[in-house]
């Protein structure tokens, strides 16, 4: 499928792009339903579903009780038996309440049954820090789910990809977990009209460069772009790759970039240890791209800490543009 619509100058916010994708899906496919807490007349915790309930009714835009485990399981059961549910969590942190159904059921049913069934389930997780919501409403847990065979995990960083990846997720016969960054919801960007998909498992090269490969996820891809412009002024030509999909990871794009630049900087908001950057680093170190490394690999990730409340502390525990600049300069000037 993977067809890319013609670019237009029309701009939508990231939240509007997601809503448009759901609107298209609801209008095209009777099997599609939305489930989640307060996604009806309230419009969703982050106003992503908005007024879709007015258009499609409460049978297809279903407010669930505050029952993440049960709700997720119902979505699994519905997906197993012919529906195409899109299940919205209010915050990705609440995935912890539903892990049983996501990890033990959705991810494994197909395999346990020897391939006899599929679970075409889409789950949406508003994730990330920056809203002052503190430790239980700010996490980036994509690595948790990325660790589970049977799931696919994506992290759009632009409005265009937010729409395209959601439509791709709906086409996919397997469970797709979409981690949306809360800070990006209001970010505007060009979004093609109509139906198109953004391929799952394919990273986007946001900026080509020859000196260092910055592999970033979600909002960090935006920060990496900002940093790259500054670095360009210093004569450092950074390549910025927006990973977009955590599982399955786009091995070819990452390795090709590292073979070209010889330097790898991973930037992600999730906790650094045992996170997405560890996987990227290991993937490079285990591959033939290893022979092209001319400096140690650097990971910039979240601190070994819950997300704090105080805004300055909150900023301090996740990578910021100056951190990316320092790391890239260090790699290039042979300080690391």
């Amino acid at each position: 499928m993977n067809m890319q619509a013609k670019p237009t100058l029309r701009e939508l916010s990231y939240a509007e792009a997601i809503r448009e994708a759901m609107d298209i899906a609801l209008s095209q496919d009777e099997r599609v339903i939305l489930m989640g807490e307060d996604i009806g007349v309230y419009g969703g915790a982050f106003q992503v579903t908005g007024d879709l309930v007015e258009k499609y009714g409460t049978d297809r835009v279903m407010d669930t009780p505050i029952s993440e485990l049960g709700g997720a399981g119902i979505a699994v059961g519905a997906a197993l038996t012919g529906l195409r549910p899109i299940f919205e969590f209010q915050f990705s942190d609440f995935a912890a309440l539903a892990m049983e159904q996501i990890v033990n059921q959705a991810a494994k049913v197909r395999y346990m049954l020897g391939g006899a069934v599929s679970v075409p389930l889409v789950m949406r997780f508003p994730a990330g820090s920056g809203t002052g919501a503190a430790a239980q409403h700010s996490q980036s847990l994509e690595a948790w789910l990325g660790h589970v065979p049977g799931l696919k995990v994506v992290q759009p960083s632009t409005p265009e990809d937010a729409k395209g990846l959601l439509l791709a997720a709906l086409e996919d016969p397997d469970p797709v977990m979409i981690f949306e960054h809360k800070i990006l919801y209001k970010m505007k960007g060009p979004v093609p009209e109509g139906y198109y998909t953004t391929p799952i498992g394919k990273a986007a090269i946001r900026r080509t460069g020859k000196d260092v490969s910055i592999i970033a996820t979600s909002i960090m891809a935006q920060k990496a772009m900002t940093a790259a412009e500054t670095l360009a002024g210093e004569g450092i030509d950074a390549e910025v790759i927006d990973l977009r999909t955590v599982r399955p990871m786009d091995r070819e794009t990452v390795l090709a970039s590292v073979r070209k630049t010889g330097r790898l900087l991973c930037v992600y908001e999730g906790v650094k240890t045992l996170g997405v950057g560890a996987e990227i680093s290991a993937m490079v170190a285990e591959s033939d791209a290893f022979d092209f490394l001319d400096a140690p690999i650097i990971r910039l990730g979240g601190a070994e800490s819950p997300i704090p409340y105080n805004p300055e502390l909150e900023k301090a525990v996740v990578p910021q543009v100056p951190d990316i600049l320092d790391a890239a300069r260090g790699l290039l000037k042979g300080r690391i």
């Binding site: 399981g73 119902i74 519905a78 997906a79 197993l80």
Partner: peptide, 18 residues
């Protein structure tokens, strides 16, 4: 584990009118 899944299957049946 099967409790919510059964409810989901029932939801499908109701939605799809099977």
């Amino acid at each position: 584990g099967g409790l919510p899944i059964a409810v989901g299957a029932a939801l499908s049946a109701k939605r799809l009118g099977t």
